[in-house]
């Protein structure tokens, strides 16, 4: 679990996870597009994410596709979120989203 928190403690790595969430199964080259990071830096960050099991890779021919693996994040949630809190937390989260959306639309 240390590896997961360490991997998530970096804004560039969270950005890479966000990109995979938006479009799962990207190659290194695709992930490097429109990023102000060198290919080498992206590759290093992906290595740390893969080590923490937050990114899973699949080989397809000569390409390596990267997938966001939410299982470790799910396990963190399971550890600290009680069984009966889930509904209330979902309601709070929905309310926050709705209110912040309203503000943006004004």
């Amino acid at each position: 679990m240390d590896a997961v928190f360490k991997a998530l403690a970096d804004a560039s790595r969270r950005d890479l996870l966000d990109r995979l969430r938006a479009d799962n199964g990207q190659t290194l080259s695709q992930l490097c597009e429109r990023l102000a990071m060198t290919r080498q830096a992206v590759s290093k960050h992906l290595g740390i994410l893969e080590e923490a099991n937050l990114v899973a890779t699949v080989k397809r021919g000569r390409e390596k596709l990267h997938y966001l693996n939410p299982v470790p994040i799910h396990e963190i949630g399971e550890r600290w979120i009680g069984k009966f809190e889930r509904g209330r937390l979902q309601a709070l989260s929905d309310m926050k989203k709705a209110l912040e959306q309203e503000k943006r639309d004004e």
């Binding site: 199964g25 099991n53 899973a56 699949v58 397809r60 596709l65 997938y67």
Partner: peptide, 11 residues
């Protein structure tokens, strides 16, 4: 086709 989701866990 390309996988849509890949889930991995170590047990």
């Amino acid at each position: 086709s390309k996988p849509t989701f890949v889930y991995v866990t170590y047990i």
